[in-house]
Design a protein around this nucleic acid. Sequence first.
DNA 1: ATTAAATTAAACTAACTGGTTGAACCAAAC
DNA 2: GTTTGGTTCAACCAGTTAGTTTAATTTAAT
Lengths: 234, 234
Amino acid sequence: MTKKDHNTEEVIKEAARIVFQREGFAGARMQEIADEAGINKMMLHYYFRSKQHLFDVIFEEDYSTLMVPLAVILRNPELHVEEQIIRFVRGYHETMIEHPRLPLFLIHEFAKNPHKVLEMAQKAIPVSKSEEPAHPNLSATTFMDQIEEGKALGRYNDVDARQLAVSMLGMCTHAFISRISVRTAYEMTDEQYVKFLEERKEHVVDHTFRILMKPDYYGKWKNKYQKEKDNTST
Amino acid sequence: MTKKDHNTEEVIKEAARIVFQREGFAGARMQEIADEAGINKMMLHYYFRSKQHLFDVIFEEDYSTLMVPLAVILRNPELHVEEQIIRFVRGYHETMIEHPRLPLFLIHEFAKNPHKVLEMAQKAIPVSKSEEPAHPNLSATTFMDQIEEGKALGRYNDVDARQLAVSMLGMCTHAFISRISVRTAYEMTDEQYVKFLEERKEHVVDHTFRILMKPDYYGKWKNKYQKEKDNTST
DNA sequence: ATTAAATTAAACTAACTGGTTGAACCAAAC
DNA sequence: GTTTGGTTCAACCAGTTAGTTTAATTTAAT
């Protein structure tokens, strides 16, 4: 920022991100981070007072990387559930293909320190325009309400909205969290696996809608969706 | 075994299990385990040479706790896929309700040390009767084949079997892995959450079948299944 | 050139942590 | 009751780790 064009602070953060995501807080060593950054260990304390503080910075950034785009989608009252689901699943996959270690990292550190993360979450996700959500991170009420509405209209199956939400999230996360198991079980190369993830995006949308929608409504949606897709690609 | 009736070895193992599952290998402290066991730290080394060895014992046991019952189901050539899915999902939930921290623990340590776990897996799951599976842990070929068969018979949707398998596993694991997020988001007490998990068992079966089966075949299955359930309960 | 900030190297500390030692303990065997 | 041998303990040891200090060097702005 001041002198060097390649900002040391940023170099440290990227190294720390790699090491913390790979080893977790307890497993990471400051020397390891310094080596990863190709920099003297002293610098870590010069820029970020302590290991804990450096970790907090990384964790908060990573948390936002994952949550903010998703929160934006789920908070948007203009969007219909179906559009929310499509954007959510695609957004999740696109972010995670770029940051494959994020889900497991966040979940593991969250599980080790839930209280801290929960209070951080309230600050991390900016609340826009005097909006005061009951569920600060994923105001799921609209989501739930709209599903009830769809059920009443006879479009949706009599599915428990909470169970559906957990299933959808599980379908999204699992391919990333269990990357190695899946890769090994299916004997995939790295490229094949990335391709698998790219494809998976649309499969998860499809699976979610198969759970949610009544067969004929699903058929109609798929038809319409297919046409839209054709129009965009031609 | 020799003198005391309350086996110290077992006391240590249970304490180690709790601490390792909560903190992970890197985060766990031998003193912490000793305290948890209400025992002198020396005893840990007396019974289990090193931290690493103690961890390996626990990890292998936990790995087996999860995998063996599932492998038994998936290896059974007598069972139809549908029955396999039902037993798999139920078995998974029942085991995990008893050991809620198992999935995240195993996945996290697996991700940190994939090579070691993979070679361990081959020993851990006993191969019965000169059976030589291509996929040692979850010989998924039968599973895949039967799904292709169901598609050919017009019973199943044109779903990618691998994607389905990942989705099913994700639906199973996520409720346990993200326990705290889910509990917080839905503002549940501990009892309510256990109830949610109990219920979830059948929901996941249902979700999986909704993805897998064509609507009319799903309808038939559900009908038959409902009758069977009524017969068992009356 | 002068100055101030950035960076490195190396030695150091204070706390922590896995692992060890040697003595005490205790129940059974003689 | 004394011996025996596995069991338990408090204290200790050696290596590691986060974090500090100090001094020297490089870099960039004035």
